[in-house]
Structure formats: structure tokens, C-alpha cells
Design a protein around this nucleic acid. Structure first.
Lengths: 144, 144
DNA sequence: CGCAATAATTTCAAGCTTGAAATTTCATAC
DNA sequence: GTATGAAATTTCAAGCTTGAAATTATTGCG
């Protein structure tokens, strides 16, 4: 199992983790300093922005790859701040729909463009060709 | 700022985060189920394994890209379990050296090969050529 | 129908993580 | 040599995260 290919995959994973953590750190600081918010809050709002009609708690945690309990607490805090709203489902009383409030939508729209610019700045070293091959590889990694 | 290249970089980042989180989730489960440990504990032990002579707390948190306070608490727990040891520096009384104990070393060596195999399994879809271009791109992302 | 299995969500304890403040020690510039 | 600033570590409060247990609701099988 410790063939050269396996070792290379391990080195790649360590490198990948380093790049991701460094970028997350920069984005976290950006969100904190410039917008007084956090990465998990941003992630939830971005997911709700993409699905304007709202999602269930389970869908939300699947989208973000976090546990149900985690989604609950982040949504709790956003709801207390008036940025998202829970609505009980009409057809299934176990289910809850979450969506951005108008305030949440407004805040996110004020954030999104700057966030995109920050991400673009972080990865300014990547050309179109880099993005082509990287995207191709990432797609195949996800499937594996 | 919202040119097509910027949008592509953002999509790539979201995809990258997805791949990383999915892999982290699998590794976390692997460590929990098969070795009764966690990702941050593993990360610390792996860093100390690479630097067998020991590192300072500051070096450790720089290596892992975590805050000093975080390194302190993870090392606290590992020390309580007898897997790492703190030693005061002889030349600078502010500084502390951390290193694996013999027990820590033995445990990590029992873990390392299986961990590598698991990582390799997770990224089995990547060929040598993929690793070439991916490594090249990741190197340039880190510098940016 | 009745009930067992499944599903959606929340709750909970434990651990992780950050960023800021506090503590102790060292370096250096007068 | 003394004070001022910088550095290494820990502490702390707050928030994040997990995984398991608890709760409530639905489904489907007999």
C-alpha cells in the first residue's frame, strides 16, 4: 500500500489541505474585519441565496457538508439576528423550511460582490488554463 | 470586479472547498472508527513525527495553520494522554518544546500506514499526470 | 387499522477553534 | 543597567462542530 503513487497522493492531500486552510483563514479574516460576520454564517446565507425559495434543514446540512446539529445552531443564531426565517412545512410536520429574510437578502447582496472579489484576489495566480485543468480534476475527485 | 475570470475562480473555490470537506469528513470518520482519535490530534502527532527532535508551540501552530490557543489545548489533551511531552527550553524561558513520547511515536507509527492507504483510496481517481498538474497548480496557489 | 421502521429536527456533552487579553521573559536602545 | 517594546505561551469567552440520543411525525407492512 505504500507504493510511490500512494505517497504522492498523500503529499498532494497535505498540500491541498494547506492551500484550503490558508485561503479559509484569509476569508475568515475578510468576513470578520470588513463585514463583522463569520464563515459558517456566510456559508448558510450563500446556500439560502442560491435557493431563494428556501430549503429544509436536512437539505441545508447536506449542501454544506455539516451535521444536522451544526446547521441547527448556525440557523438559530442567524434567526435571532433576523437574517433568516424558519417556516413549518404545510405538508410534513417534521419538516422546517429556512429562507433568507429581506434583511438577510439585503445583507448578503452587499457581501457577495466583495466576497467574490476577495476570492478572485486570493487565487489571482490562476489562469484560464489552470482553472480548466483544476476544475476537471476536482470534478473527478468528488466522484471518487 | 465581476468579470468571467473572477466568477470562474469563485466556482473553483466552492468546488475545492467541497472536495476538501468531503475528504476531511471521510478521514475524520476513519480516525474515529478505526483508531479512536480525531483529525486535530492526528495533525499534531504527524507534525511532531516529521520533526522528531521536537518543535516549539509557535512552530507547531504555524505548521498547522491554527491559532496558538488552539495548539495549546490540543497539546494539553495529548499530554494528558501521555502521547506528547512538553519540555522547557534551556536557553529561553518563554519557550516550550513539544515532542512525541515513545508511546506517542508507537501509536503514530501504527496509524501512519493505514492513514496513507485511506488517503490514497480517497483519491484513487488521480493518475500520475493528474498529480503532476495538480501539484504544480497548488504550489502556485500557495504563493499567491 | 396498528405498529414497526424510517425520517426530520433538536438537544446535548464533549471537543475544536478563534481572537483578544494576560503573563512572563527576552532584546535593545538609550 | 533600566525601561520600552517585542516575543512565546497560556487563558478566556464565544462561537463552531461532531456524533449520539431524544422527540415528533410519517410511511408502509401485516
Amino acid at each position: 500500500m505504500s507504493d510511490p503513487l500512494s505517497k504522492r497522493r498523500l503529499k498532494m492531500w497535505i498540500r491541498l489541505l494547506g492551500v484550503t486552510r490558508a485561503a479559509e483563514g484569509e476569508l475568515r479574516e475578510f468576513l470578520r474585519v470588513r463585514h463583522d460576520t463569520t464563515l459558517p454564517r456566510f456559508d448558510v446565507m450563500a446556500a439560502l441565496y442560491r435557493r431563494r425559495e428556501g430549503v429544509t434543514m436536512s437539505e441545508l446540512s447536506r449542501m454544506l457538508l455539516v451535521s444536522n446539529g451544526n446547521a441547527t445552531t448556525v440557523v438559530d443564531r442567524l434567526e435571532k439576528d433576523g437574517l433568516v426565517r424558519r417556516t413549518p412545512s404545510e405538508t410534513d410536520r417534521r419538516t422546517v423550511h429556512v429562507a433568507l429574510t429581506p434583511e438577510g437578502l439585503a445583507q448578503f447582496e452587499g457581501l457577495a460582490a466583495e466576497h467574490e472579489a476577495e476570492v478572485s484576489r486570493l487565487f489571482a495566480g490562476l489562469s484560464e488554463a489552470d482553472l480548466d485543468s483544476l476544475t476537471d480534476i476536482l470534478k473527478r475527485m468528488r466522484g471518487a
